[in-house]
Amino acid sequence: MKELILISIGIGIKSLIFIIGMFLLAAYLTLIERKFAGHVQQRPGPLHVGFHGLLQPIADALKVLTKEDIVPNFVDKYLFYLASLMAFVPAIMILAVIPFGEPINIFGYEIKPYISDVNVGLILALAFGSISIYGVIFAGWASNSKYPMIGGLRKAAVLIGYEVALGFALVGPIMLAGTFSLREIVEAQQGFFGAFIWYQPLAFIVFLFSILAETGRTPFDVQEAEAELVAGYNTEYSGMKFGLFPLAEWYIATFVLSAIAVILFFGGWNGPHIFGPISPYIWFLAKLFLVFMFLLWVHWTLPRYRVDQITEIAWKVMLPLTFINIFITAIIVIIKG
């Protein structure tokens, strides 16, 4: 009994650290994105709040939190409030199963840099990702307005297509590793040429497309195509309820899915031990940062696909590609034993 209480306290503290850390990180990811987008367009981005805009996220957070929160008259109030949470909570829940490194010993205590190591971690991550679709659809429906409605339905169409492709893309690495646990998948990829990207390039490409579609980044950002729909499904939102959507979708979801990409394809925290005991964390975060920056790079380069083109790519190109990938992987696994 005493042990159970201790474990739950430990997990509670750990979750708090993860959630607060994720909030701060997401705030600063906005700054990174704004700086990057600015320099791609040959402008400096935030510059005046703090040194080169370093305090800009804090100023933005204060502004968004203190803004008037308008709820339009004819919205479905319950769903309207629920939608912002439904979009945000599942996105941050995926963090529960993501391992950031191996367990380490500090002063005799074993500290695990992950909240839980479930043996179906990957499936949980997929499930949470699917729940966040509801947030978008609810937001579109509850707003009782045409632009959010169109945006929500577009996002739903895109997500349904790419969830399937994403799920099948993950099958390849799972077959190679023989497990669903994210920690064991990392342990299965030892050495530079052990990373699954060398064996699963097709799966990686499909996974990359799916990340872009799931997180609503270009070329798949039809749900908030600001030239066509005002802001997509969050048009009627304001204040922090509005802030939660981009935070959840553009930053937390992108971050978490990049983490899964690193774990599945880039060998997670494996790397030469050149930074002493903290080198696994440094390797993991460095890989994560590179993948995230690559997604930003793609976002600020490409124009937008049409809705029908996006769903066409999902069902006609990406899904067959994953099937081919699974087939080839299965044959190789059978031959090699």
Binding site: H39, V40, Q42, P44, L47, W297, V298, T301, L302
Partner: peptide
């Protein structure tokens, strides 16, 4: 063509900004 686009943005990333403060 994706890679061409990525190359262009990367080149722009390294160039100096042209804005006035």
């Amino acid at each position: 063509d994706f890679i061409h686009g990525l190359k262009t943005t990367f080149k722009n990333l390294l160039r100096k900004t042209i804005t006035t403060r």
